[in-house]
Each structure stands twice: as C-alpha cells, then as structure tokens.
Amino acid sequence: MSRLSLSLVVLSPLAAAAAALFVGAYGLTPQAVWAALTGVPAGPESSIVLDIRLPRILLAGLVGAILAGSGTCLQAVFRNPLVDPFILGVSAGAAFGCAVGIGFVPALPLPFLAFFFAALAVAAACVLGGVGGDSRLTLVLAGVVVSALFTALVSLVKVMVDPQRLQSIVFWLMGSFALARWQQVALVAGALVVGLGPVLALRWRLNALSLGDDEARALGVEAGRLRFLLITVTTLAVAVAVSVSGIVGWVGLMVPHLVRMVFGPDHRRLLPLAMAGGATFVIAADTVARSLANWEVPVGIVTALAGAPFFVLLLRRGRKGRWGA
C-alpha cells in the first residue's frame, strides 16, 4: 500500500475536524472560524466555535480513536476478528450505571456512574473468566454472562421508571456528543494516552500474541501477562469513553476490519491507522447526526446506518481473505 494512502488515512481526522467546524445550524465563514481559533474575540462566532463545535468534534475524534484502537487490540488478544471493545461487558455495565443514574439517583453525575459500573462489569468478567489463565474462551463467555446480567438489570430499571426517564435512558444508550465540554475532552484525551499509549508502544507484539499463547511464549512473549495488561488498559479507556458519550456501536468492530482489509494485519501499521480511521469515522458520523434533522439523531444510529452498507460493500470488493480468518 502506497505511502500516499497511508498518510491520507493518518491525516484524515484533521481534515474531517476542519470540515466539521463549518457544519451546523449557524453558518460560519472561514474568516470567523480563523478569528475564533486564533483568539480574536468576535461575538457569538467565537463561542460557537470554541465552546460548542470544537470540543464536540474533538470528543468525537477521541472516542472514535479509543473505540477503534481498543477493538483492534482486543481482536488480536482474542484472536478473533469479530471481537469488539464491548466484549467484556463494558457497554452493558455503563448502560446499567446510566439507567440507575437517570432512574434513581439523579444527584450523582452520570459519567461517574457509567464508568463505575463499566469498570465493575469488566472486573467481574475478568475474575470470572480468569484473565491471566490459558483460555480466552472462558473469558469471552464470562463477558457474555456479565453482559447478559447487566442488560437484564437495565431492562428491569426501564420497566420501573416513568416514560420520560425511560426516554432519557434510551437516548443515552444510543450515544451522543451533544453535551461535550472541554472538561470531558480533557478526560477522554487522558484516557486515550493512558489506555492506548501502552498498546501503541507494544503494538508489534500484538502480531506474536495473535498467534496464540503457546506460539507467543515460544517466540518470547509472556502471553498471559501481556494479555492482562492490554485488556486492562483498553477496557478502562473504553469505559471512560462510554461514560461521556454513551454507547457508540459498530466503530470498534468495523473500523479495524476495514483498515485490515486495505492495509493488512501487521499491527505496526494497523493500530495507528485504525485509530485515525475511527476518529475520522466518528467525527463524520457525529457531524451527520447533528445536521441531518432539526433534532439530534443519536450518533450510534448514524454509525450503524452508514457503517453497515459501507461494510458490506467493502467486504464484497475487498481482497478475498485479507480481512479475517
């Protein structure tokens, strides 16, 4: 694959972010955006750019990078291209935290509850499945069990609360960046550094790890320990992302696939490219979500609606076998 297309993917989040700055209910000229970005106070335009659009775009990009990066990493860890970052119950745990918050304890901040239960769900799955042990299958099954448990609890909360709260819960579960603030941007940026930084640094070893524990060990990788580290850091980053944005589906499954189809499975290239691709995809999806109708379309709906057909198209055209098992 040529250097040109590599650089295009790496730079695409910047282009998407720049374009997204101009999309929205209030029309902006390039001059106004430039003035706002360079710190010249210029009335409502500055505020729209700096307080509303920019944090939202950055948050979408950061969440996209975390979801796609974690998806790539966990697909290698579980040796399965069908794994997504929610495999160990992060999303179900976060959903339960949100449902409890909206339904019963509105005094507590929602992101905190979402994060708490997301982390709890992953921890439970890891303890149940024996994360350092030899069987990935038990870990996946533990994730399924924990997800099922928390999903049932969410349904329970849903039938207990009044319709208005029910609507809020449903809306949150489909993901949104509507309430993006700089504080959350900083939080998620921190999660990206702490969660995906180690994965980026160790990414070449993902190749060996994806061969299975026995081969990885024979090649000199402490497979159990590395897997434990990778699962911990990525799912914590995903928990933070989910706690501020809700559950944006498809990104963590689809983007790594697409990038792998085009650029091959070597994680030295795959991981950074998937992160860039995830950022671009979520920025684009969120831009569509906020400009499609008079009301906010949940971004999770856009990622699925846009992602599914695109995915099928690429699957059919893609080089046979290059993308998976």
């Binding site: 994806s210 081969e215 990885a216 090649l219 990788v221 402490e222 091959g264 499975p265 993308w323 998976g324």
Partner: peptide, 27 residues
C-alpha cells in the same frame, strides 16, 4: 526461565499453523 530467555535458547516448529489474521510471509 522467562519466556524471552527461553526463546533465545530454544526455537520450536509445530506440526501445523493456524493464523487468525492474514499475515504475509515476511511478517
């Protein structure tokens, strides 16, 4: 021995090789 030290002493070739991802030979 830690896995790394062991790998520096002993290299293994197994019967068969299944790869979940489609690496090329050089990789």
């Amino acid at each position: 021995q830690p896995a790394r030290r062991r790998a520096l002493m002993v290299a293994s070739v197994a019967q068969d090789h299944e790869m979940s991802f489609d690496y090329d030979v050089f990789e």
